[in-house]
Design a protein around this nucleic acid. Structure first.
Lengths: 75, 75
DNA sequence: CCCTAATCGGGTAATTAGGGAG
DNA sequence: GGTGTCCTAATTACCCGATTAG
């Protein structure tokens, strides 16, 4: 990681993406077919997905479990 | 693959969570809508719930006294 | 070269989301 | 106020055999 010029994106296998989303690898393939995911094809026809793209789509919807009430709010 | 870093949360389907709680999947959906459960959305709109979160809420561990009434109703 | 696991395809059942009424 | 059931449309999961990845 000491390489500042790393143009190579982190590529994930369908199985990896499926695990991240909690779905079946086939479903990930369906998303790629629908154009919802950027897919890179290997010479054999298998798909590889960009890690940054996938992680951004997972939507960090972490519940705002009331950490600290921001004051000065009209509550 | 000595993968010691297993950050991937175990994601459960609505049916799984409903079975664990003994309620209907619809009710689980309502909980997610109310923000009482952390939900990850698939690209198709389906929800996946974090296993650790769910298991923590079920709390098979006899909590010290006070069955903990998880209030947090401080809205 | 052979091997195991994963991913291609397509097709069909099961599940889920959403709203509405009891 | 919260929950279970009914409906339709959309999405997802599992089945097969063949090919690719490593």
């Amino acid at each position: 990681m000491t390489d500042l010029r790393n143009d190579e994106p982190e590529l994930l296998t369908p199985h990896e993406v499926a695990t991240l989303f909690g779905v079946d690898p086939k479903t990930v393939t369906r998303w790629a077919r629908a154009g919802r995911l950027t897919a890179i094809r290997t010479l054999g026809g298998h798909r590889r997905y960009v890690g940054s793209e996938v992680r951004a789509l997972i939507a960090p919807r972490t519940t705002p479990r009331v950490t600290a009430r921001v004051s000065l709010g009209t509550e």
